[in-house]
């Protein structure tokens, strides 16, 4: 009897300890006001970040074109193996959008994946990429978003499977895949390649679709940009490394032209969700498209993952 009682006590202590460990490990860790720099807002740069970041591809109506891409009322449903994610309203509407959000709250969503109420956001919102962005760029982006038309539309909740529906568990995911580091240029590389890498890894979040994922939904960095099964449907997102499986036979100007016009070197057209991405990139400067191209030519050529 005594032994059994001891055993129960030990089990209880272990349960409390692991509960405490889970609680402590999964606490959202936001930035504070002191982390924000002195900054003079630049709306034109904010617009560049908006197009490079592709906000409208998910937060506007499905397949929105032209100025409709600036109406960020949300509503797109992303049907994935984890369940259905419903993209929220990020228009500057005060009741149903993010019109009331402070710059700090916005920065915490983008860099820490933390919502306004302090809880974790799902990484279907690609903050694992956006965390690389410079704070100044994020402040400019927030200011630009405030100039867009408010859309009054209540965001719908996600519909996710267990255990993915437990938000707190995302704290563990973040321990694995979120390092909170801002982009740092590589001094061995040219300014152009560094700019391209910033656009690809930060706002452009290219790897979120072009890199395959491990069992926990984190990006497999060993296969950076080597293509991946599409998150939705049965397609394959192309390998964009300079290899035989990828786009090794494209010149840098071919890559830049495809982002500008939507045409591949053989005058096939980009399609699927890349259509929307390409139309976003047609709005950034030619210098930025050239930078993305220069970076993509500089990365290691990799074969596509087996499927």
């Amino acid at each position: 009897m005594r032994l059994l009682r001891k055993l129960v006590v030990v089990v209880l202590i272990l349960a409390v300890l692991s509960g405490a460990a889970f609680y402590w490990l999964t606490i959202p860790r936001p930035l504070t006001a002191a982390d924000l720099p002195e900054h003079t807002l630049d709306l034109a740069n904010g617009e560049t970040m908006f197009w490079a970041g592709g906000c409208g591809s998910c937060h506007a109506e499905e397949k929105a074109k032209g100025d409709d891409k600036k109406k960020l009322g949300g509503g797109l449903a992303l049907i994935t193996e984890f369940g259905t994610f419903r993209v929220p309203n990020i228009s500057p509407d005060r009741e149903t959008g993010i019109g009331e959000w402070s710059a700090l709250e916005f920065v915490n969503a983008m860099k820490r994946g933390i919502g306004r109420n302090g809880s974790h956001l799902y990484p279907a919102f690609p903050y694992a990429s956006y965390q690389r962005m410079y704070l100044g760029d994020l402040l400019d982006l927030k200011a630009y978003l405030e100039t867009l038309p408010p859309v009054s539309k209540v965001s719908e909740p996600n519909d996710l499977k267990f255990p993915f529906n437990i938000r707190r568990g995302l704290g563990l995911w973040k321990l694995l895949y979120l390092d909170g580091k801002t982009f740092e240029p590589d001094s061995e590389q040219t300014e152009q390649v560094n700019r391209g890498r910033y656009l690809v890894e930060g706002p452009g979040h290219c790897a979120e679709c072009h890199t395959s994922r491990d069992f926990a939904g984190g990006l497999n960095r060993m296969l950076n940009l080597a293509g991946a099964p599409a998150a939705e449907g049965d397609g394959f997102v192309p390998n964009i490394t300079p290899s035989k499986d990828g786009i090794g036979d494209w010149s840098a100007s071919d890559i830049a032209y495809s982002l500008e016009s939507g045409f591949t070197p053989s005058y096939d057209s980009l399609g699927g969700s890349m259509t929307s991405v390409q139309e976003n990139f047609s709005h950034v400067s030619a210098a930025d498209r050239d930078a993305v191209a220069a970076y993509l030519k500089s990365i290691p050529p990799l074969p596509s993952p087996p499927r």
Partner: peptide, 17 residues
């Protein structure tokens, strides 16, 4: 004319490689 290529491929084609 060319804009037809991508608008159609956006919806009616699924890349497989």
């Amino acid at each position: 004319v060319a804009s037809n290529c991508k608008s159609c491929h956006e919806t009616y084609r699924v890349k497989k490689n």
